[in-house]
Simulated assay, not measured.
Amino acid sequence: MNKVVVNPENYQNTYLQYLNQCFPNWGNETAYNWVFERKVGENASDILLLKDENNEVIAGSSITYRIVQLEDKSSINIGIMTGSWTLPQARGKGCFSQIIEESKRICFSRNVPFLTAFVTESNASYRRLKEAGFYCKIADNIFSNEVAFSTNQDFSSVKIIPVNIDVLHAKYQDLSSHYSTFAYTKEEFKKQYANRLTNTQCISINQTLFLYEDTGAIIKLLFSSGFNSQDLVCFCDWMRYKEDKKVMFFLSDVSKIKIAQKANFHFVKGFLTIQKTHESIIETAEIFKNISINLGDKM
């Protein structure tokens, strides 16, 4: 069995090198700090490494922590497996399975009852998590098309507005009356949704607010205060005409997924995979079946 090292000292630069080796252009020190050093809730992120019999590092992962507020206003802590990697020479040797078990152990030791991970259907990690018995909640990556939906779109209702955290946070909190959601204080929401790695902007379309991030290659729609196909298509067409870029967003609600399907958006099938961290914890499916996740909730 490989040796496990948790939260090694002065390891940031080395860990960042491994991330970029396994995921080319993963990011720099600024990205590392935003993903791993930023605290949401009471638990700081954990880093774990696997070392082989020669004491050589062969794999690693992180657990970032969030709070989910349920529809009854109670809340639970979750851990999210973030940036898991295995060096090429160690792949196929059970490293990821060991990372899963160690991550569950760490979460349980912190009174965190559920371990989660975001994956796409084509990802090898999804297949391994499914085999390990993780509950798979639909959570799709969705893209606008290469061309505009309409050639005569009316943009008269589009208004560029300031990013107002007070208003956006209040709109976000409105979601919790209908869904389970990730919970943020106003300051945590600002750091998660507005103070991101690239510039965030906001527009209004027929009173619906769209908060988005321009990554250079694509527009990431982080949050919208409402959801209907007409305003969503208008937003995507505006970005196609104004920036000549596709829009990406994220949906975990089945009714919203059906709206996007009917409007002919492009889907990359994905899941939020979830497993309890100890046998004594209540079952998973009933807790997470009505969770609403935005692209802004993700790293």
Results as ranks from 00 to 15, higher is better:
residue 220 K to M: 01
residue 191 K to F: 14
residue 224 S to W: 04
residue 203 I to K: 04
residue 257 I to G: 04
residue 272 L to A: 06
residue 201 Q to G: 07
residue 164 N to W: 05
residue 285 A to R: 07
residue 290 N to L: 00
residue 176 S to V: 00
residue 273 T to V: 07
residue 214 D to A: 01
residue 193 Y to M: 01
residue 258 K to T: 15
residue 256 K to T: 08
residue 254 V to Q: 12
residue 192 Q to T: 15
residue 264 N to G: 06
residue 273 T to R: 06
residue 268 V to S: 11
residue 208 T to R: 02
residue 177 S to K: 11
residue 163 V to D: 13
residue 253 D to K: 13
residue 179 Y to C: 00
residue 218 I to N: 07
residue 272 L to C: 08
residue 269 K to D: 11
residue 216 G to N: 03
residue 222 L to Y: 05
residue 163 V to Q: 13
residue 215 T to E: 06
residue 197 L to A: 10
residue 194 A to K: 13
residue 268 V to L: 13
residue 274 I to W: 03
residue 244 D to L: 11
residue 292 S to D: 08
residue 286 E to S: 09
residue 240 R to K: 15
residue 250 F to V: 06
residue 251 L to H: 08
residue 285 A to T: 11
residue 177 S to G: 07
residue 273 T to Y: 03
residue 287 I to Q: 07
residue 254 V to A: 05
residue 227 F to I: 01
residue 249 F to R: 03
residue 229 S to N: 06
residue 256 K to D: 08
residue 202 C to L: 11
residue 293 I to M: 05
residue 233 V to G: 00
residue 237 D to C: 10
residue 239 M to E: 13
residue 242 K to P: 15
residue 268 V to H: 11
residue 163 V to R: 12
residue 229 S to M: 04
residue 216 G to M: 03
residue 234 C to N: 09
residue 289 K to Y: 03
residue 261 Q to V: 09
residue 206 N to H: 14
residue 201 Q to W: 06
residue 278 H to A: 06
residue 261 Q to S: 13
residue 265 F to D: 05
residue 161 I to Y: 10
residue 276 K to M: 01
residue 247 V to D: 12
residue 237 D to A: 10
residue 277 T to H: 04
residue 242 K to A: 13
residue 247 V to E: 12
residue 206 N to V: 07
residue 191 K to L: 14
residue 172 Y to K: 04
residue 201 Q to F: 11
residue 182 F to A: 10
residue 251 L to R: 09
residue 164 N to C: 07
residue 168 L to Q: 03
residue 212 Y to A: 02
residue 239 M to N: 15
residue 196 R to T: 14
residue 233 V to W: 01
residue 225 S to K: 02
residue 194 A to I: 15
residue 192 Q to N: 15
residue 281 I to E: 02
residue 282 I to T: 14
residue 164 N to K: 11
residue 234 C to Y: 02
residue 181 T to E: 09
residue 269 K to W: 11
residue 277 T to R: 04
residue 207 Q to E: 14
residue 276 K to N: 06
residue 236 C to H: 04
residue 179 Y to H: 05
residue 211 L to F: 09
residue 169 H to I: 03
residue 183 A to P: 14
residue 213 E to P: 08
residue 210 F to Q: 05
residue 245 K to N: 09
residue 213 E to H: 10
residue 269 K to I: 11
residue 243 E to T: 14
residue 200 T to D: 10
residue 191 K to S: 15
residue 261 Q to N: 15
residue 223 F to W: 01
residue 225 S to M: 01
residue 192 Q to Y: 14
residue 197 L to R: 13
residue 220 K to C: 02
residue 235 F to R: 02
residue 181 T to F: 03
residue 267 F to W: 07
residue 232 L to I: 09
residue 259 I to T: 12
residue 294 N to L: 00
residue 213 E to T: 09
residue 246 K to I: 05
residue 181 T to N: 12
residue 236 C to R: 07
residue 269 K to E: 13
residue 253 D to P: 04
residue 247 V to Q: 10
residue 254 V to K: 10
residue 215 T to C: 00
residue 180 S to Y: 01
residue 289 K to E: 01
residue 215 T to A: 00
residue 194 A to P: 09
residue 230 Q to D: 08
residue 238 W to S: 05
residue 280 S to G: 01
residue 240 R to Q: 15
residue 270 G to C: 03
residue 177 S to I: 01
residue 269 K to C: 08
residue 235 F to L: 03
residue 207 Q to Y: 09
residue 296 G to I: 01
